[in-house]
């Protein structure tokens, strides 16, 4: 028994893609991340949930250093996050990010949004980049909108373009920072379906969301945060049917029964 579990641990250790160790961050007096320890294995889908202000978005943003941390270490694929500069830019290219407010480049067409990073960061050939961009836009179901500007698209379409833009960089891991929170209800599913497909394809994903349905169906693991701490980590089944902490029970009772 012991031998088996040791072997398992070894596999997990080499398979770790993202590792946060003892991460702390303050916004002024607010201790927004407190001693965060979290590892995400290759191919794993981790959903981070919790009440507003629990630090889950901040956690997500520290992983590609859009937020700096005060102490602790974050490693991606074994390499610690570098300081601001060329090295960091290279690392960010490997970490796809999808924002709550889409953040598509407003002065560029949908197609150019997906091409830009490939050409300017990956130094891809313009022609190849365009082919790949069109394929990705088709894959997320907005191929027909390629020549429009972001403002001409619905929120759900914009968010799917944003996913395509991130995928165009061939990221090792994708971060989703409340990707459906700014969407009208009828557009949430079209985005979640794309994310679910991505999860099935084996993409490593860290998803901050309030969509419990997505957490149940797509997550390998649920991380529950409150007041800057990770309070509970469990499989979706365990977490939703039998939460251990009072904080999680309280949270779930507020969102699940009405």
């Amino acid at each position: 028994m012991t031998e088996v579990s040791v072997a398992k641990d070894d596999v997990a250790a080499t398979g770790d893609l993202v590792a946060l160790r003892n991460v702390n961050k303050h916004f002024g007096a607010l201790h927004v991340l407190q001693d965060i320890d979290l590892t995400i294995a290759r191919g794993e889908v981790v959903v981070v949930i919790g009440p507003s202000g629990s630090g889950k978005s901040t956690l997500c943003r520290t992983i590609n250093r859009l937020e700096t941390i005060d102490s602790g270490t974050i490693t991606i694929d074994g390499k610690p996050l570098p300081q601001e500069g060329r090295e960091l830019a290279r690392l960010r290219a490997d970490v796809g990010m999808v924002f709550q407010s889409f953040n598509l480049f407003a002065h560029k067409t949908v197609l150019d949004n997906v091409i830009l990073g490939q050409v300017k960061v990956r130094k891809a050939d313009k022609q190849k980049a365009e082919e790949k961009a069109r394929a990705l836009l088709d894959r997320v179901g907005v191929g027909a909108q390629a020549d429009k500007y972001p403002a001409q698209l619905s929120g759900g379409q914009q968010q799917r373009v944003a996913i395509a833009r991130a995928l165009a960089m061939d990221p090792k891991v994708m971060l989703f920072d409340e990707p459906t929170s700014a969407l009208d209800p009828e557009m949430i599913n079209e985005v979640l379906e794309v994310m679910q497909q991505l999860a099935r394809d084996g993409m490593t994903m860290i998803v901050v969301t309030h969509e419990m349905g997505f957490a149940r169906s797509a997550a390998n693991r649920v991380v529950f945060m409150a007041d800057g701490r990770i309070v509970e980590e469990a499989t979706p089944d365990q977490f939703f049917s039998n939460p251990r902490s009072d904080r999680a029970k309280d949270f779930l009772s507020k969102i699940l029964h009405h």
């Binding site: 830019a89 960061v121 944003a162």
Partner: peptide, 12 residues
């Protein structure tokens, strides 16, 4: 968010 998205895809 425009600058953040640009940084997030690895632009300098």
């Amino acid at each position: 968010g425009q600058a953040e998205a640009a940084r997030a895809i690895g632009l300098s």
